[in-house]
Amino acid sequence: MFAVQFDRFGPPEVLHFATADAPRPGPGQIRIRVQAAGVSPVDVGLRSGRTPMSARLPLPHIPGVDAAGVVDEISDDVDGVAIGDHVFGVVDVAKLGGATAQFAVLHLWAHKPTAMPWAQAGAAGSSTETATRALDLLDLQPGMTLLIDGATGGVGSIAVQLATARGIRVIGTARTDNHDFLRTLGATPVTYGPGLADRVNALGTTRVDRALDVAGAGSLPELLQLTGSTATVVTLADFTAPAQGIRLSMGQLAGEPDGRHGLNTAAELFTEGRFTVPIDATFPIQKAADAHETAEHGSRRGKIVLTIDD
């Protein structure tokens, strides 16, 4: 099969086209012919070598943890899906990638709604799983107010919508030029950065019940100030959190119920017109290096996606 891969760590230019052995699904897995694949921060970190997980990668490596496509092979122990079905999900996580290729093996998946564009489906998997896991950890109840710090990126923009669908009032931080974008997702926008607590209070908010840190920009003390307890804050990106008594949620992708139920919920909400995957930019797979460059240095309003023409 054809694949985008790298055989050394470095800038986006290390990515190149090559041939590779097509993967085979293991127990509990399916294989798809890829139509679209997301480019996420974890892909950028692994390729650059800046994350400790890079040490686990055998080289050459095919990046990409999110993919959508047409099912073409199914493990014997899998039911509820058939050859030819259109699905989206997360790749075999033991390999930390593999989506930017002609074929990919999915570890978690859901059926793609008919009307969902391939680009949105290809970018939905890991962000939906991550956002769902964080919201579950926060034990949100209808009527609560949730503050999301870093609400416009790939995970944040999805967390806003999933929380709103649960009957949660969401306040989201963003640059001023992204405030209208946040409103379209259902959040009340507020500018990020020092002084956040004062700006939230200026909105007339009487109570912030929970806070989710997606940005990892050092806001945890102010999030604690707003919610009043370490038990009401979860971060996905601040590795100083455990020292402050705050929960740091890392990617588990462990299957039911912590992963797949979130994908199914997102698919249902899309069909109901209550969920979308914001796309910042789309590139053909031949421009994978450009996509990584944009993901690393471009604006953070939704997801970056690679598409594969039939």
Rank of each mutant, 00 (worst) to 15 (best):
A163Y: 02
A241H: 13
L106Q: 01
H297I: 00
G64D: 11
W118R: 04
D180G: 13
V70F: 03
L236S: 13
M144P: 00
D21F: 06
D209I: 05
A215M: 07
Q35H: 14
G89P: 01
G245D: 14
T227N: 09
L59F: 11
E268G: 05
L182S: 10
D180N: 13
P278S: 12
I279K: 10
F270L: 09
F6I: 02
R24W: 01
A3H: 08
Q102C: 12
V42C: 03
G98R: 04
G153H: 07
Q35F: 09
D92P: 02
P194V: 12
T188K: 11
I83D: 01
G98H: 05
A121Q: 07
I62M: 11
F9S: 03
L182E: 13
W109R: 02
H261R: 10
Q120G: 14
P60R: 14
E222G: 10
G195F: 13
T188H: 10
A18T: 07
P23H: 06
V39M: 07
A101V: 03
M144I: 00
A124F: 11
K303P: 06
V44R: 00
L269I: 02
I62N: 06
T152A: 15
G298K: 01
L196G: 08
R274I: 05
L182F: 13
G204K: 10
Q102A: 15
M116T: 10
G216I: 13
F9W: 05
V233K: 13
R47T: 01
I148M: 11
P142C: 03
L212P: 09
R247L: 15
F2L: 11
T176H: 08
G172H: 07
H107R: 02
A101W: 06
R169D: 03
R274W: 06
G89T: 05
T205S: 09
V87K: 03
L138K: 08
A82M: 01
L106V: 01
H179R: 09
A215D: 08
Q5S: 08
R47V: 01
L185C: 12
F103M: 02
V170L: 07
A289W: 06
P60N: 12
T19F: 10
A291S: 05
Y192T: 09
A55F: 02
A82R: 03
V34A: 07
P27M: 05
R24D: 04
G273L: 08
Q141R: 04
V42T: 07
V277S: 11
K95Q: 14
D309N: 11
I304Y: 06
P23G: 06
Q252Y: 11
G172P: 07
D310I: 07
P41M: 04
V277T: 10
D238V: 15
G228L: 12
L212K: 14
I246D: 13
A94T: 14
V277Y: 10
Q286S: 14
R31C: 03
D198E: 15
Q252F: 10
A231C: 07
I279M: 06
W118N: 07
E129R: 02
S54C: 01
A231T: 15
L220K: 11
K287D: 13
T271S: 15
T276N: 15
V44T: 04
T235K: 12
D198T: 13
A94R: 15
